[in-house]
Design a protein around this nucleic acid. Structure first.
Length: 876
RNA sequence: GCGGACGUGGCGAAACUGGUAGACGCAAGAGACUUAAAAUCUCUCGGGAUUCCCGUGCGGGUUCGACCCCCGCCGUCCGCACCA
């Protein structure tokens, strides 16, 4: 008989050691069984794990352990997304090296993850800041460069003149640098780009094949790629108004059908035509300057009014040389989309309408909605962008929008203008190339050398890895690598003359764009991947992580996989077959009387007269219970996983994380909930102890005769086994857990109901089976408790290595079925009939029911609907 | 503004393909055990009425039957945003 209480503090480390000793979770690349690759998004080593990690990794571990039990060769690795700014900031603060801080954090967090009992193959651990990792990233960059997938071009960046550094958009607050507070400038910088736009169409089209991705994520990527079909149209500039050397204005439109509704043209403040005119027009130059200043701040951009400035330039309408349109410089036209120039059709575009209403240019509707009279249809404040037929459009009148688009395109394509067609169909994408240059120390150095005579020279592959210098001074403005006294000075690999290394490092998103491939063969020091091995393991069968990576990380990884395919590193283009995005961990917030945030660990909660009240443990002062919010340091509503695991054990924490909410939704962490989970751990332990006392021996064959009681237990066991299995496969962990609880409740009731098991060999067998299955079912969620229970049930090899039990579908169903009986759609009675009973028999039984007789009141029913094995509805 | 998701007891939620609404749990209440507390066990737990009625954000519709499908609103959350 086993101990009264289960002690996770003693038990958990014991089983973790056993798994490690037996290498239970090591996966071999030459294992012949079918593969299954489970991956959770790897963490940034920020210092300590948080509850979000616990949730993420608990989910992944359930999948990994379940698939392993199902006979798959499971790959479940872990690593560290270890480059990035926080390490550099911490090092500056502590006057140490970013690597010291990073590796210390990794050590701490590795220990924490191990205490969770995750079934990870730690022999494949990687850290992206390790030269053994980034060496291959540098080699791949060179491969991409050779394959034409890398570009070097000028681009505009947010420049902080005080910190001498480039800022990401989110680091610009109200037009000022987030650290220095200096007014941010727009600067042109030569940067390295990965040509993700080469794959725009494919990245878009292939979204349709990702049927195990959330619809939401696919939609977000689709919008981000932003494909639009339109027409490039060249407008002839009226020579009388043309600035020197200008004769035409090219625009891009997705609505060529509305060309007869044009009232004006608008170009971006950065458009060359604007600059030309501004040379002789100081007021316009001022206006352009104003637009530029405004351009940096997100807040003003959002609320900005539509503003424009008439350049005085006039262009001719493509279908009517006498029709002249004014050209404005407008603040709402973007230079980096399309041509940086548009034609304005106010009746059918809200921005254009706002613009003409501000400048009194009027509008002419050219699309008339169904059911409206074209003679009276007018647009005032709200542009009409729906369907309809063309009006006021000469030869287009009466056509649909699609027909008119086609007609305009066809006509203008055949008009010759200066030796070229006046218009050209063009597909545009919103997606931009991926700028990867960062003026930072703690990142992967870009492996190229700049030579005055040979220009840009790729670093020779033999010279890789180009390691970061250890002796670095971070206390400088600008790029520390650039300021290093010796690092950048190297001879040109081409001509041998003095040259300098590229001092920019790569965006850390590059590091995380291929780590999933590296895990397949992390020991390989020759190449990034062993193609055959990578192709065997990939794609990742189930990827799990936060929705915050829905666009960038996942899109970059999809691009990288294609680029690796193009350069021979991989033989596939989509890295993640199944994607699951889990919700956040949220918690109540607490505030003291003075408004200060108070941590959950500092308070006590009591229920007084049905109302929850919180008070400080120290002093007893009352605390206000606030809204449930995402766990954050600033609101101090965090709970430390170490404390939870130390108090309740890892199994309790894992169980609660999975049980309370559907996995894609936020879960509210609550003390009561954890205690409930902890109670259940003890409940299971007691139940298994009781079962162990009455169960048949391990491996005992079922007796030939089974009592009804024994059969009922077997049916219970197999029914829940089937449903738990199905729920885990659909990642419905909360309902899987409900089914497990039903089974344990059922077994517990069954034990309570029997007097003497020794008289019934079938019962002993049923309890053996039920106990074993129960432990198997919760083993993926609570692996340590499962091992302890498995041992208590008499097994001598770990359950982590045991196969999943086989459900007997015949046992999972009853011979009889209970049908609810509805009268006019309301449930009034129920009958139990044979599963095989035909409809006529069921109808007869139903009509004999007292409740039915009463409702019919002697009359014949209008109709009886029998849904076999489901329900019966009598229409009176 | 555009796009999407969601709205069910005091709370987290469940309900397969249109077929018994509220499974499973949390909290709460009553009782048993105990000197007492904790733990444990038993019972109650959507609202109202003694035969029944109402109830899945609101209003309508389709259907023998609607949380589920359709139309129109309201609310909450998320993403994107001057994209031509």
């Amino acid at each position: 008989m086993h101990a009264e209480r289960y002690n996770p503090r003693e038990s958990e480390p014991k089983w973790q050691e056993l798994w490690e000793r037996r290498q239970t979770f090591h996966s071999r690349n030459d294992d012949p069984r079918p593969k299954y690759y489970v991956l959770e998004m790897f963490p940034y080593p920020s210092g300590r794990i948080h509850m979000g990690h616990v949730r993420n990794y608990a989910m992944g571990d359930v999948v990994a352990r379940y698939r392993r039990a199902k006979g798959f060769n499971v790959l479940h690795p872990m690593g560290w997304d270890a480059f990035g700014m926080p390490a550099e900031n911490a090092a500056r603060l502590n006057k140490s090296h970013p690597g010291t801080w990073t590796y210390a954090n990794i050590a701490t967090m590795r220990g924490q993850l191990k205490s969770m009992g995750l079934s990870l193959d730690w022999s494949r651990e990687i850290a992206t800041c390790d030269p053994s990792y980034y060496k291959h990233q540098q080699a791949m960059f060179l491969d991409f460069l050779k394959a034409g997938l890398v570009d070097r071009k000028k681009s505009k960046v947010n420049w902080d003149p005080v910190d001498q550094t480039v800022l990401a958009n989110e680091q610009v607050i109200d037009g000022r640098g987030w650290r220095s507070g200096a007014l941010v400038e727009q600067r042109e910088l030569t940067q390295w780009f990965l040509k993700i736009t080469d794959f725009s169409q494919d990245l878009l089209d292939s979204l349709d094949t990702l049927d195990r991705w959330p619809e939401k994520v696919r939609l977000m990527q689709k919008n981000w790629i932003g494909r639009s079909e339109g027409l490039l149209v060249r407008f002839r500039i009226d020579p009388a108004t043309a600035p020197a050397g200008e004769s035409e204005l090219e625009i891009y439109t997705t609505r060529p059908d509305t060309l007869f509704g044009a009232r004006f043209m608008a170009v971006a403040p950065d458009h060359p035509l604007a600059a030309k005119v501004a040379q002789n027009n100081p007021q316009l130059a001022d206006f352009i300057g104003e637009c530029r200043r405004m351009g940096t701040s997100v807040a003003t951009l959002e609320t900005a009014e539509k503003k424009g400035f008439d350049t005085g330039v006039r262009v001719a309408h493509p279908f009517d040389p006498e029709w002249k349109l004014p050209v404005y410089v407008a603040n709402f036209v973007l230079m980096d989309y399309g041509c940086g120039a548009i034609f304005g059709c106010p009746a059918h575009d809200q921005r254009d309408l706002d613009f003409v209403n501000a400048y009194g240019l009027g509008n002419v509707p050219v699309v008339c909605p169904q059911g409206q009279d074209p003679a009276t249809f007018a647009v005032t404040d709200v542009a009409y962008d729906g369907d309809g037929l063309m009006i006021n459009s000469r030869f287009l009148d009466g056509m649909t929008i699609a027909q008119a688009k086609e007609e305009v395109s066809k006509r203008l394509e055949t008009v010759d203008m200066g030796g070229r067609p006046q218009a050209k169909r063009q597909v545009n994408f919103r997606l931009r190339d991926w700028g990867i240059s960062r003026q930072r120390y703690w990142g992967c150095p870009i492996p190229v050398i700049h030579c005055e005579s040979c220009d840009v020279v790729p670093a020779p592959k033999e010279s890789l890895p180009i390691k970061l210098p250890e002796d670095v001074q971070l206390d400088v403005t600008g790029n520390p690598l650039d300021h290093h006294p010796t690092w950048k000075h190297v001879p040109c690999p081409n001509c041998g003359r003095p040259a300098r290394r590229e001092t920019d490092t790569m965006d850390t998103f590059v590091d995380s764009s291929w780590y999933f491939a590296r895990f397949t063969d992390p020991w390989n020091d020759k190449t990034a991947t062993n193609k055959a091995v990578a192709d065997h393991w990939l794609p990742v069968d189930q990827y799990i992580g936060g929705i915050e990576h829905a666009i960038l990380h996942l899109l970059y990884s999809r691009f990288f996989t294609r680029a690796m395919q193009a350069t021979g590193h991989l033989g596939l283009s989509e890295p993640f077959k199944g994607l699951f995005t889990q919700g956040m961990v949220v918690h109540e917030t607490y505030r003291a009387a003075d408004g200060a945030w108070v941590q959950p660990s500092e308070i006590r909660i009591e229920t007084v007269g049905g109302a929850r009240r919180a008070s400080l443990i120290e002093g007893g002062a009352e605390v206000n219970i606030g809204a449930v919010e995402k766990m954050s340091k600033s609101k101090r509503n965090t709970v430390d996983p170490d404390d939870i695991i130390g108090t309740f054990g890892a199994d309790t924490a894992r169980w609660f994380m999975l049980s309370d909410s559907p996995p894609e939704r936020d879960v509210i962490w609550s003390e009561e909930g954890v205690q409930g989970a902890s109670r259940y751990v003890q409940q299971l332990w007691r139940l298994i102890g009781e079962i162990a006392g009455i169960a048949a021996p391990v491996g005992a064959a079922p007796p030939a005769q089974m009592s009804d009681k024994a059969m009922a237990i077997r049916r219970l066991t197999h029914g829940h086994l089937l449903r738990v299995q199905e729920n885990i496969e659909r990642l419905r962990f909360n309902t899987a857990i409900a089914e497990i609880r039903k089974l344990s409740n059922g077994l517990s009731d069954a034990i309570g109901a029997i007097e003497d098991v020794s008289a019934d060999a079938g019962l002993a067998f049923a309890f053996r089976e039920g106990g074993d299955v129960l432990v198997n079912l919760f083993a993926p969620m609570m692996p340590h408790l499962a091992e302890e229970c498995w041992q208590a049930l008499g097994h001598d090899t770990p359950i982590a290595e045991a196969p999943w039990p086989v459900a007997d579908a015949a046992l999972a169903t009853n011979d009889t079925v209970t049908l609810p009986i509805q009268i006019n759609g309301k449930k009034r009675a129920e009958i139990t009939v044979d599963r095989s009973a035909d409809n006529a028999a069921v109808e007869a039984a139903v009509l004999a029911l007292e409740a039915v007789q009463k409702a019919l009141d002697g009359k014949a029913p209008k109709k009886i609907i029998v849904v076999p094995q489901r329900i019966v509805n009598v229409v009176a």
